[in-house]
């Protein structure tokens, strides 16, 4: 593992094992994450991005299970570690920010009490140290430390999300995983939170994996962007490159589905159809039923990831020999 690489995910697959059959939610995903890098993972509902995130954080609940692959964090394979071994890593080196603060924060405890809980759980005993660090992280996210006494319901939505992020910063982790932390916020609060996150990252130097369904949100903040569809990686490359020259028809369709504020008003069509049923994956490319550029080969053979100018794309239009034999 090269120094400077914080996370290595190799051939990770996650399945839901149920009585009626197996659903492959994440199929063979691999990527590396360098220290201080901002990786955005984008996709519609049901594409597996949240499952991937939970798999990396080792937060999967039965019937979900990692069925193959490895998640190497700072040199150690996380898959298969016991809860005790994971507890040492959790929050100190890797922390998670959930989608809805109201679901993740304890509604009957003040913010300060929850920070105290987290720190005590990791062996910080001195009250003075706890108080000081709590105030420090709150100031980092722009909240007055007197709010340590507040309960979650007394704070606005934006402030709650910020305090969640502050909690994730308590031990200055090397990796922060964020699952749609801004989806419950209005557009102005959203922008402000994104700017704050980016500032914190530049200040403290941690890596971020940011999962969202809203591509435009990460367009100005992430270094690399991964587009997921139907449980597999559709496109993966430098953010600007993916936005300026999207290669996969799904990425193109997704980008086109955002009506613009500026520029001419044009009629859009979105992407007709709906995501595949992961319990009944059709043979061939998973996007074929909805693809405007589908070829005969696409419905039979699933494409691999092909390299185009530093971007990986899973499409026969860009590799694998083109249309192939018909």
């Amino acid at each position: 593992m090269t120094s400077g690489t914080v996370l290595e995910v190799r051939d990770l697959s996650v399945s839901y094992l149920m009585d009626r059959g197996t659903t492959l939610a994440v199929d063979d995903v691999s990527f590396d994450l360098s220290a201080g890098e901002f990786l955005g993972i984008v996709g519609e509902s049901g594409c597996g991005k949240s499952t991937l995130l939970f798999a990396i954080a080792q937060l999967l609940v039965t019937p979900a299970e990692i069925t193959s692959g490895s998640v190497t964090f700072k040199g150690r394979n996380m898959v298969g570690l016991t809860d005790k071994e994971l507890a040492a890593v959790r929050w100190r080196d890797m922390s998670v920010v959930m989608q809805s603060a109201m679901n993740a924060l304890n509604p009957v405890k003040s913010i300060g009490a929850q920070f105290t809980d987290a720190m005590r759980a990791h062996g910080v005993a001195s009250k003075g140290e706890i108080a000081e660090r709590s105030a420090e992280v709150l100031r980092m996210v722009g909240i007055d430390p007197l709010h340590l006494k507040s309960y979650p319901h007394q704070l606005s939505g934006g402030m709650r999300q910020r305090s969640m992020i502050a909690m994730a910063m308590l031990f200055t982790p090397d990796l922060v995983i964020m699952d749609e932390p801004t989806s419950a916020l209005d557009v102005v609060a959203q922008r402000s939170l994104m700017v704050q996150i980016k500032e914190l990252q530049e200040q403290l130097g941690f890596a971020i994996i940011f999962v969202t369904h809203d591509m435009s949100l990460v367009s100005h903040f992430s270094d690399r962007l991964m587009v997921m569809y139907g449980g597999v990686v559709a496109e993966f490359g430098a953010t600007r490159q993916v936005f300026d020259t999207p290669l996969h028809p799904y990425s193109i369709g997704l980008l086109d589905a955002f009506p613009s504020i500026r520029g001419p008003r044009v009629p859009l069509t979105g992407i007709p159809g709906s995501p595949p049923d992961l319990a009944n994956i059709p043979p061939g490319c998973r996007f074929a039923p909805r693809c405007p550029k589908v070829m005969a080969r696409c419905e039979v053979e699933p494409p691999e990831l092909y390299q185009v100018d530093g971007t990986l794309v899973r499409c026969f239009l860009h590799g694998g020999g083109g249309p192939g034999d018909d």
Binding site: E44, G46, T51, L60, S274, P275, D277
Partner: peptide, 21 residues
């Protein structure tokens, strides 16, 4: 709630399951 847009919505990490049958 978390998985929007799946006709045969299977499972979401939050555990809400609609198992056909």
């Amino acid at each position: 709630g978390a998985e929007v847009g799946q006709p045969e919505a299977v499972v979401s990490p939050t555990g809400a399951i609609a198992v056909a049958g």
